[in-house]
Every structure is written in structure tokens, then in C-alpha cells.
């Protein structure tokens, strides 16, 4: 039964374009206990973790997805004839970090933290669907409120917002930098 489940999971993840969530799997598979499901995932992930496999199963944005392993990056790029993937500009990344840590947040709040007008960056991020507008703030001018999107999680390979670098981690890096300077 367990092997059967493993195979089904493999099939379902294989065919999914978006990260496949546990809920969705349960919906499809029907009655299956959480333990069985987790055991299935584990077995499947172990299978793919082996070095004779070029692809793996990653957990991102709350679901499972097939992805190539990073060490084979160059081959994919050769096939697709992509020299380099475009990265976010540092201004956009900075804006995105602020939204990630301060959400829900308005344009004015973001600009205040950066000390720089961020309207243009927000536009870019919206276009890339890394952030979304979730409503308007009940404040003078009713400014728009921004949040990060599912796409954001996927883009950075985060399973949920809890996976963002923690405050302590940041504090530690700052401490190390300080010691380096002095």
C-alpha cells in the first residue's frame, strides 16, 4: 500500500504545474492518514535525493514540485539557450524585503523605511506578481496595502513566510559585520 501511495504521489506531483498541496492530494487520493502521506513523501524524496537522479522534489509555497538539481543548471541553460536568468534589481529586492517583513504595508511606509520613493519598484514587483494588493488602508488617502504573493514564496524557494530569515539570524550577521569593521 505504501509503495502504491508513493507512486501515486509521484504521478500527482509530476503532472502539477503549481506546487501541489497536501490538501489537494488528500482531495484526490481520498482516505489517507497524515502519517502515511508523510511516509510516502519521505520515501519519494529519498528516492530522488540519490545522486543518480537529476531531478528532485522540492517543497515550496506550501506544496510539492519537481525541480532540477542545482548542479545541473548549466545543462538546462544550454538547452533553453538562456545565458543567465535575470535577477531582481537591488532596489526591487530591498522593497520586497520590506514588504516581506512588514506586511501588510503601504507605499508610504515602504518609502519611509528605504528613504527613497518606491512607487516604481512596487510597479515592477506587481508586474512580476511577487506582491499583491490586498486592499486599502483606513487612513487618510486610503492608500493601497501590499503583501507578498504565493509566487514570492516560490521564487525564493520558501515553503511559507515562516521560512524567511529570522530576526536573530539577521542580528547575528550584523554583529559579525560589526566585528569585522572594528
Amino acid at each position: 500500500m505504501n509503495d502504491q501511495l508513493k507512486v501515486i504521489l509521484e504521478v500527482l506531483i509530476f503532472i502539477s504545474q503549481e506546487p501541489l498541496t497536501r490538501d489537494k492530494i488528500k482531495e484526490v487520493v481520498g482516505e489517507v492518514s497524515d502519517e502515511e502521506l508523510e511516509a510516502g513523501f519521505q520515501a519519494l524524496q529519498e528516492d530522488y535525493a540519490s545522486s543518480c537522479r537529476g531531478i528532485q522534489i522540492i517543497q515550496t509555497a506550501g506544496g510539492f514540485l519537481f525541480a532540477t538539481k542545482p548542479e545541473h543548471d548549466q545543462w538546462v541553460r544550454r538547452l533553453l539557450q538562456i545565458e543567465k536568468k535575470t535577477k531582481l534589481s537591488s532596489a526591487a529586492l530591498e522593497t520586497l524585503s520590506i514588504i516581506a517583513y512588514h506586511q501588510p504595508v503601504t507605499q508610504a511606509e515602504i518609502s519611509a523605511i528605504r528613504g527613497v520613493d518606491s512607487t516604481y519598484c512596487l510597479k515592477t514587483l506587481l508586474q512580476k506578481k511577487l506582491i499583491k494588493i490586498v486592499g486599502r488602508k483606513k487612513a487618510p488617502g486610503n492608500p493601497l496595502i501590499y503583501r507578498t504573493s504565493e509566487r514570492f514564496l516560490q521564487y525564493f524557494g520558501l515553503n511559507s513566510l515562516d521560512d524567511l530569515p529570522k530576526e536573530e539570524e539577521i542580528a547575528k550577521i550584523l554583529e559579525e559585520e560589526k566585528q569585522m569593521v572594528s
Partner: peptide
């Protein structure tokens, strides 16, 4: 803090971009 968070996210971006 945001600057550090940005560099951390940049690392994640780079790593993630190698996973197709």
C-alpha cells in the same frame, strides 16, 4: 536589517534560479 535581509534573499534567489 532590511539590507541584510536583502542579501539573504539574494542568496536564496541565486540558489533557486539554479533549480528549474
Amino acid at each position: 536589517k532590511i539590507k541584510v535581509a536583502s542579501t539573504l534573499l539574494r542568496e536564496k534567489e541565486e540558489d533557486q534560479q539554479q533549480r528549474w
